[in-house]
Design a protein around this nucleic acid. Sequence first.
RNA 1: CGGGGUGUAGCGCAGUUGGCAGCGCACCGCGUUUGGGACGCGGGGGUCGGCGGUUCGAGUCCGCCCACCCCGACCA
Length: 491
Amino acid sequence: MSDEKLTPRNIDFSEWYNTLVLKAELADYAPVRGCMVVRPYGWALWENIQAALDRRFKETGHVNAAFPLLIPMSFLEKEKAHVEGFSPELAVVTIGGGEKLEEPLVVRPTSETVIGSMYAKWIQSYRDLPVLINQWGNVVRWELRTKLFLRTLEFYWQEGHTAHATSKEAEEETLRMLGVYADFAINEGAVPVVRGVKSECEKFAGAVQSLSIEAMMQDTRALQSGTSHFLGQNFAKAFEIQYLDQNNTLQHCWTTSWGLSTRFIGAIIMTHGDDQGLILPPRLAPIQAIIVPIFKSDPETAAVMEAVNRVQTELKAAGIRVKVDDRTEVTPGFKFNDWEMRGVPLRVEIGPKDVEKGSVALARRDKPGRDPLTGASGKSFVPQAGLAAVVADLLTDIQKSLLERATAFRDSHIFDPKDYSELTEVVQNGWAYSFWCESSECEAKVKEDTKATTRCIPLDREKGHTLTGAGGKCIVCGKDAKRKVYFAKAY
RNA sequence: CGGGGUGUAGCGCAGUUGGCAGCGCACCGCGUUUGGGACGCGGGGGUCGGCGGUUCGAGUCCGCCCACCCCGACCA
């Protein structure tokens, strides 16, 4: 239940975000520091995200499975970079059933190791390849500083793990799944993302190469919204994932992993939300249209509810996720604000006047529902007849306009600074897109001077490899640089 | 782990010099209301974060501890 206004975004973006997550009832703080409870409304959103992704995973030939939460500590130690990357943030179980364990168990921070160990068992022949498995689950990373959805000790995600016969196949898979994420983010979440290659410093612990999709939030900070890793033979060698090829030669597999988490909910919130609350993209919104009945007296109630039920049935039949807010204890005005806080894309009001005229009032969430100066409502009145088609069209249009708005915002906050001094300025309120020599020294200098990090070296959408061209001079050191990178402050 | 802040009713907070634990919202009941956050009347709800100390008396003063939030270092 929302009873107060939000802190405006331009006053305190972080405060706006935190209170919005709580007020919209997406999540709540759990008894343990840094942990969160995903509430039903937030989970419904996650379920829609899952469905949209899972469909894409199945279409690209993947199957789901479930691997255990507990992993022997020794497994993580088998891959050097992996254990170095993850050991500071492991939760470790040392006692089980009242007895000290012979070997400590880690609560999975990610599942490459345990899945790798199983792949070693399952894969014998080139005929067993590729193995294309995804798992929906939760993982634990003991983060020092947490924030609802963006970084919590425990989070929900999916992690895909694949094994291939050749490097080329594995690299293609890595790229394919990055494409799936980008397609999902853009077309389902209306979150415009850039896809690219992470720097050596920023890549996944144990990967040969990490790819990511990066989104710009309304405070212009970057949010890594999904990652796809080419693991080379690192884990295959650590876990002896081997197969006999056509020539009866023993070969190590080439593996990939890719993940997208409940963090994406944070991306949706911070990409689309406004000072009234959430704005959910229609394709992912748990409720796409909320019907608010309005009535004054009993005879009117019956007539209004008759129309409400009829409209609800019609919208439902058209496949629209619709809900009627039939609460009697709060006024329509309260409901308007309440559902705006929750980001429902479209509101349908039906009152005595509508019953009389055979109309409904529609209010889009993405356009101002109330003119703060004139008090004009900004609602449109449409006939009840044929409403489902109108609503469906509007939802499509809202989806489209959210993406356009977010894309325009992003593009207007990406800069091409002419020198280093300008770079340090633009990353305070945007991203810099600049040539970089790809040395970790230059990367570290930018981070130290500005707190901005490299986000990714963008990929050409069609060709799938990074842009190549004449090249330029590194924005930091002035040496020759082949490729451009995004510098931005990140979550 | 450093810096800052906060712990008092479900939430947000006030509580002066140490002297009956309060306000707003929410909640429950009844009635009137309902097209942009309704109103009246009547109710219920407290280990004042914990432990210890000072005192006739502690929400208030002192010490220690704990938790959470925000800002950094680390990270999806």
